[in-house]
Design a protein around this nucleic acid. Structure first.
Lengths: 226, 226
DNA sequence: ACCACTCCTCAGCTTCCTCTCAGCTCGGCA
DNA sequence: TGCCGAGCTGAGAGGAAGCTGAGGAGTGGT
């Protein structure tokens, strides 16, 4: 679990770095708000700890900027009890939890773990076409409830067609998007489409991948074959 | 002692209301999940009883929502024996105890009292997948009740996979989240997955860590190997 | 200093994809 | 009907992806 700690008190930083590393976290540290924000924007952390009082840019603003950048990593704020900042203000900027200094290390870790667990990233949407399901998060494909094992390449081709279902997609477009740069014959695409049909259509007497002669392929849900 | 009972069977509700009132509990009742959640969010109960099958919103989701709202009131789930929901899923959402219908009233009250006594604690987020338990709070792992000793790195890898169970996780993602920044070969990940399999799967004839060729690994509870 | 242990590297091995190729079918058109 | 180009597909070589045992470097305990 990767964690970012933005805190300027060196003693506290050292405590946290050792402790959290031992708990199985990979710890990055920033000793000011600006550096903290940079790191948060560059890396994909599982949770971020922000001291509310930081040199450079305070924790609330760091958090707000992260949210502006559409980074939804859970944030835990460390606040002093002096009441200069109150909890409401922090919640407003999109923090997920609060711990007031001085805090118990054990409690902090417990709450970090809770945040990590809760902060399940939103998954990319599952594509459904009739009784065909294509789920990029789990890399699963099923037809009529039955799992259909696909190789990586097959899955990639199907996913691309699915993302453009209804449209005619040229073979060269498929090459470009699935293979990136490919120097060979477009026949590879035909080979993979053939394999896909054999797996997701033929055994179920369906026809989902249609050939549009001279143009490409179209993914479309149609009824059972006669 | 204030208690919330979310249950839609009127006869059972009446039984519980009378019985528990007689035992000295102040009883609130909800006959559907949504109302149950509302009450749980508004009031400060000492313990909550949730039927797993509820109209509106099922018990598991009610419990999950309560935990999201950081309400750590102990929750006791009522489950039917039909196996539609299993215990693992329930524990996963943060329930504290289980009672299978039909149940003895005396036993139910005994367990309620035990829960109340234990009181609310910071919820350790334990991952449960079938008979595999991964507890980040204690850094322990057990399979089928037997403790499995893991090294720090092994545990960290397993924890990360567990936090995203069901999803395919790329080796590079594992590297990033478990190692932080790592300049070497992704083969380290393979080495650790191999070690994990040797410890948590092979001796128990299970298969929990699945390879998804060309994509990564998926942690998933599946039945025993043949 | 030695032992125990973990972490990581490396190299050999296995598995099973990926892509090429060649021969085929199909559809459109004169 | 016969021809042609577009598309389909089975077979197989070659290679990529993944697995794992062995071992060296580092660390901490005794």
């Amino acid at each position: 679990m990767r964690i970012l700690v933005a805190e300027d008190d060196p003693r506290l930083v050292e405590l946290l770095r050792r402790g959290l590393t031992g708990e199985g976290f990979a710890v990055d540290v920033a000793d000011n708000g600006i550096r903290g924000l940079e790191l948060a924007l560059e890396n994909d952390y599982d949770v971020v700890v922000l001291d509310i009082m930081l040199p450079g840019m305070n924790g609330l603003r760091v958090c707000a900027r992260m949210r502006e950048a559409r980074i939804w990593t859970p944030v835990l704020m460390l606040t002093a009890r002096d009441g200069e900042y109150d909890e409401a203000e922090g919640l407003d900027t999109g923090a997920d939890d609060y711990v007031t200094k001085p805090f118990s290390y054990v409690a902090l870790v417990a709450r970090l773990r809770a945040l990590v667990r809760r902060g399940r990233r939103e998954r990319p949407p599952v594509f459904v076409l009739g009784d065909l399901r294509v789920d990029p998060a789990t890399r699963r494909c099923e037809r009529a409830g039955a799992p259909v094992p696909l190789t990586a390449r097959e899955f990639a081709v199907l996913w691309y067609l699915a993302s453009r279902h209804g449209e005619v997609v040229a073979k060269t477009e498929i090459l470009e998007h699935v293979w990136g740069d490919f120097e060979g014959d477009v026949n590879v695409v035909e080979v993979y489409v053939s394999a896909l049909r054999r797996k997701i259509d033929a055994p179920f007497r369906r026809q989902t991948i249609h050939t549009v002669r001279g143009a490409g392929y179209r993914l479309e849900d149609l009824r059972t074959l006669p």
